[in-house]
Design a protein around this nucleic acid. Structure first.
Lengths: 152, 152
DNA sequence: ATCTAGTTGCAAGTGTGTTGCAATAAGATT
DNA sequence: AATCTTATTGCAACACACTTGCAACTAGAT
């Protein structure tokens, strides 16, 4: 049974192939899960979704693939303030870095892009002579809804 | 054998006592380890240092004390870009937040305070109506030394 | 069709952090 | 100073995320 390999290959798959890496059945599945994710997924969620597409995907392969994508700078790893144990979450690396805000009450994760953040990174590179490869800015606190809810 | 309890109690101990928490022998030791740390320590390093002062400190007590301090906002938890496995590192919460930069080559951790960072936090609070409790900005990349070293 | 090195799956292992519960001790009360 | 109450501790067992060694497999080149 052929895989839905004719679907648009997706940027992740194209990127990996252009780097001379082998495109296995398992990798294709894991990449598609990561690419089509509508929210931040952790390794076990990725495994579960991958198995729905092909029960022949191992936990270890998920870890190895995530680590590969991370090494190649194609995905970012998030901690989301460790609100749900010690899980790590993953998302495709975006064009422009963004901030993750985690509400300590309702658990909602929101994202925010900011010119100030871009300028701050520039300042770090200049003032500290530090060549930035990856950044992670996470903020814990209370979102607008939960602020008004608790004020009521 | 009395403990060196007559030493200046330290801010952490004073803070906890002012909040009506019991000051046990174990807590005093763990607090002093955290307060006098010259670098970022993880839980197992804290345990080891605590045991040097009193072999009667349990691993669990270290975890519980760190979690207590974190809940009370007296220490911050760092991931330092997960360069050394999944450890978490701890430091006393400073007056002013700072950025942690982790060199991916030599592993050095440097810190940086920035007005832009302060302004960015202000922007988040305003634009997102998000009440910030804690922030963590970690940057991975290459420090000045390692940049020049690899250019050579 | 064949080859070879990159990749996978299994099983076992590592390490961090957590939980239930009986024993202990801090700090208040008398 | 003795007593009391309840927070805290230590132990043992557990939970879970992630890793490693290695034989079997297979993608992509020849």
């Amino acid at each position: 049974m052929p895989l839905p390999q004719t679907e648009a290959p997706g940027r992740l798959q194209a990127e990996l192939m252009s780097r001379g890496l082998r495109m296995t059945r398992q990798r294709r599945i894991i990449l598609s899960v990561v690419e089509t994710a509508k929210q931040h997924l952790d390794a076990s969620q990725i495994l579960r979704k991958a198995r729905k597409l092909d029960s022949q995907v191992d936990r270890v392969t998920v870890y190895r693939t995530l680590s590969l994508l991370k090494r190649h700078g194609l995905i970012d790893e998030l901690d989301l303030m460790h609100m749900q144990g010690e899980k790590h979450f993953y998302e495709r690396r975006p064009q422009r870095d963004h901030i993750h805000m985690a509400c300590l009450r309702c658990g909602k994760i929101s994202e925010f892009e900011s010119n100030l953040f871009d300028r701050l990174k520039g300042q770090i590179q200049r003032d500290c002579q530090f060549h930035i490869v990856v950044t992670r800015l996470e903020v814990g606190g209370y979102c607008a809804q939960c602020r008004t809810a608790s004020a009521a």
